[in-house]
Amino acid sequence: MSPGDTVSNKVFPQGEWVPPIRRIKNVTFRNVAFSKTIISKITFTDCLFEDCLFTGAHLNEVEFHGCRIVNCNLWKVRMTRVYLRPEKVRFAKRFRIEAANVGISAYHSMLSNFAEERQDKFFMEADIKFRRWTRYQIWHDLRVEKKTLQEALWGWVCSILHDYITGFGYRPWRFLFWTLVLFFAVSYLNYTLIGDAIKATDLAPTLASPVSELQGEVGLAGHASFIDTVFYTFSVLTVLGFSSVTPMSDFAKILSVMEALAAIGWLGIFTAVLVKRFLR
């Protein structure tokens, strides 16, 4: 196999494959079957694998540098001490509907390999893709009645939110962005609903009034300002409490309690994302 060659429509024998050379460069494998083939101690460089079968294959101490694996069946492939960038493995959209289990099997095998080799960056990318393919599998399970429609919809929505908000726990900056968006949205909601029921207490002394006369004086006329509402909302959602801005009506107090309880769970997720990303 010389650089530039194309190997197509071939079936490699089961068992260990002993190639003529251990370094294969710039070779195209198209429609080739490696089913139950043991591929050991080979380095592929700038190669293309397209529409190949790796079902039940065992890759042992194999390196893929600059290679692309496109629309290959990696069902139950085993990887041991393999170097392979997850983004180089690509599947057509039809796999999401017809054979989502192929993607699940491929990335699950990569996860085991990357965890053993301590390739944390590759593990992260493989885990994200594995979870996405697990989401595609939901509709297949629904078609074969392994899931009810309610379970499928719930799993799909949770997976979508987990993906786009936290990057499955690997995108803390994305989660911080959505946290700020959510907190400001709640601030606007509070400004609209309970702006009249929030009072800001001004305890700062002035030259004309002694401190003793200012204690307990409430300085608010009409609707609270948006800045006061933002300060009040962030104090509640970060569970820090508040002193100079307080709710006055019963509805405002109940809403504040509900927001604080929801914020505890949200900030708990934020902490889990930071731990998963930086302290794994």
Score class of each variant (00 low, 15 high):
1 M>Q: 03
3 P>H: 04
4 G>H: 07
10 K>S: 14
10 K>G: 08
15 G>C: 03
15 G>D: 02
17 W>E: 08
18 V>F: 05
19 P>N: 04
26 N>T: 08
32 V>Y: 04
34 F>Q: 01
35 S>E: 07
39 I>M: 09
47 C>V: 07
47 C>T: 10
49 F>R: 00
52 C>N: 09
53 L>T: 01
53 L>W: 05
55 T>V: 07
55 T>E: 14
58 H>Y: 11
61 E>H: 13
64 F>E: 00
68 R>N: 09
70 V>R: 04
74 L>N: 00
76 K>I: 01
78 R>F: 07
78 R>K: 14
79 M>A: 03
81 R>W: 05
85 R>A: 12
86 P>F: 08
87 E>H: 12
89 V>F: 05
92 A>M: 02
93 K>P: 05
97 I>H: 10
97 I>M: 11
98 E>Q: 11
102 V>N: 03
116 E>I: 06
121 K>E: 15
123 F>I: 01
123 F>S: 02
129 K>S: 01
129 K>D: 07
134 T>D: 06
136 Y>G: 00
138 I>E: 10
141 D>Y: 06
146 K>M: 10
148 T>P: 06
148 T>Y: 03
149 L>Q: 15
151 E>Q: 15
156 W>M: 13
156 W>E: 14
156 W>D: 14
163 D>M: 11
164 Y>R: 15
164 Y>C: 11
166 T>W: 06
172 P>M: 06
176 L>Y: 08
176 L>S: 12
177 F>Q: 00
182 L>V: 06
185 A>Y: 00
193 L>K: 13
193 L>T: 10
194 I>D: 02
195 G>Y: 02
199 K>S: 13
200 A>D: 12
205 P>H: 09
205 P>R: 00
207 L>T: 13
208 A>V: 11
210 P>I: 10
213 E>C: 07
214 L>F: 14
216 G>P: 08
220 L>M: 14
221 A>M: 13
222 G>P: 01
222 G>S: 02
224 A>F: 00
224 A>D: 03
224 A>G: 02
226 F>K: 02
226 F>L: 13
227 I>F: 15
227 I>L: 15
228 D>H: 15
233 T>K: 04
234 F>E: 08
236 V>I: 12
242 F>E: 02
243 S>T: 14
244 S>F: 11
247 P>D: 01
251 F>W: 00
256 S>M: 09
259 E>W: 05
259 E>I: 05
267 L>S: 10
268 G>L: 05
269 I>H: 04
273 V>A: 00
279 L>I: 05
280 R>S: 07
